[in-house]
Design a protein around this nucleic acid. Structure first.
Lengths: 139, 139
DNA sequence: ATCCTACAATGGACAAAGTCCAAGTCAAGT
DNA sequence: ACTTGACTTGGACTTTGTCCATTGTAGGAT
């Protein structure tokens, strides 16, 4: 179940109750929680855990490349544990629902050399926007 | 010069010194200022202008579709006056430099129906990440 | 040219998201 | 079990942005 926890353990991470709880809360598919949502859920399992620790822990997991940061709306950053299967995001502009998606093609290849301005381009982030089935006007 | 100002005027926008200054500050190519940067530059031309007015004005220009909001980094939103030529962004992960780019292909078409989860997908936002010529390690 | 008034600007309080730090705690190696 | 360096804590602080009551003003009407 907790693949994320396994991977972190395998990297010599010093394991603490706090880190375990954060990793457990964040594990799963189509999970895109904000730091404060993670904190709220962590608190329900480990009441003393502090906000600073949640921020620290999330930051470390991002540095280790085990968790991705996504900023789909203009609000808080969200954390995505699905870091090892490259994917993009589909966001509902109304309710904010997020799904992971896997488009065909390679958008990186679509950027011609004469549009690169000498940059070393290494990554591309794609966000599809629209309305989810619940929020779309009934056809 | 000030195409943005012209377009806004043509929409029956009530013209004030503050709005003119904000529009002038924001006009140009490859311009991607934060609200506070806009405010700082506006203040140098019109010292009494308030932060709230800059935020309001930017918000209105976004609502009118004359300016785009982009959130490339995890910090403040940036405002892009180039709203009438669809484009994406190329961001330097080191120094934060941003360029407008125009990739080939249509990423919207790359999202297969069975990956749409019933969403009505209407827009796609693409951010290329890398290192600009100044920040890239010398080859 | 002056008056009106609805719309705009002001600035200060407030809120949300995130960072920082000094002090206390604890996991894990010996 | 001891020790130590890494981890956690909580609160102050910063940044970014919003809200609102008050004051000011653009631009049409007279």
């Amino acid at each position: 179940m907790s693949d994320l926890l396994e991977r972190l353990r395998g990297r010599g991470w010093r394991m603490t109750a706090q880190r375990r709880v954060v990793a457990e809360v964040l594990d799963g598919d189509h999970v895109h929680l904000t730091a404060d949502e993670v904190h709220a859920r962590a608190v329900s399992r480990l009441p003393e855990i502090s906000r600073a620790t949640v921020y620290n822990t999330l930051g470390e997991m991002v540095s280790l490349g085990e968790v991705l940061e996504v900023s789909t709306d203009r609000r808080a950053k969200r954390y995505d544990p699905n870091a090892h299967q490259p994917h993009h995001h589909l966001v509902c502009g109304q309710c904010g629902a997020i799904r992971d998606v896997h488009p065909a093609g390679n958008p990186l290849a679509d950027l011609p050399v004469d549009e690169r301005y000498g940059f070393m381009v290494s990554d591309v982030e794609v966000t599809y926007r629209g309305l989810c089935p619940n929020c779309a006007p009934t056809a």
